[in-house]
């Protein structure tokens, strides 16, 4: 059974006119799928490959290079939180923020809470060094934050979506 819905296929096809090669649509397609399914199942890899006239291994090769994408055994929670651990943040408490959030959420970086709400990740420099320590919820960066502020922000982000 097809895993890509017609709506997802439509979103992926809309990228085709932008590029002279179909392969260039691999990253946009992977983003579309992960946005919707919170992971990129192997069947989706096959279907993307078929849409773009590629071998599934080519899509899998790209997918596996970027640490960003999750396979079906490791789907994302409803919110994905990345805590920056690079130098500017480390100097202002980034590692402590990651450690404390890990303890409070009861998960290690890379893991998802058992209720499927939150995936915690470490990040390399998020580019908000004037607001260190910072973290990113989905694709928006916030900082500087204490652990309490981070948890409050996360709660509000969950309520808003």
């Amino acid at each position: 059974m097809a895993i890509l819905t017609e709506a997802m296929r439509e979103r992926i096809r809309a990228y085709l006119p932008r590029y002279p090669s179909k392969q260039a649509v691999v990253l946009p397609a992977l983003h579309v799928v992960q946005d919707e399914l919170r992971c990129v199942p192997l069947e989706a890899v096959r279907e993307i490959a078929e849409m773009l006239d590629l071998h599934p291994a080519q899509v899998q090769d790209t997918l596996s290079f970027y640490g960003f994408f999750r396979d079906e055994k490791h789907p994302l929670g409803r919110k994905r939180v990345w805590v920056c651990r690079s130098l500017s943040c480390m100097l202002r408490g980034g590692e402590e923020l990651l450690r404390d959030l890990s303890a409070r959420l009861g998960v290690k970086p890379g893991e998802t809470t058992p209720d499927g709400r939150i995936t915690l990740e470490f990040a390399e420099c998020l580019g908000q060094c004037e607001g260190a320590p910072c973290l990113m919820i989905d694709d928006e960066v916030h900082g500087p934050l204490t652990t309490e502020q981070a948890l409050e922000l996360l709660k509000r982000a969950e309520e808003a979506s």
Binding site: S21, V25, A123
Partner: peptide, 23 residues
Amino acid sequence: HRGAGAYICGEETGLIESLEGKR
């Protein structure tokens, strides 16, 4: 064109490969 979290894409030919849908 949105990336997917890889520092090496700032290297100009790494960027081009990534744009083309490859590692």
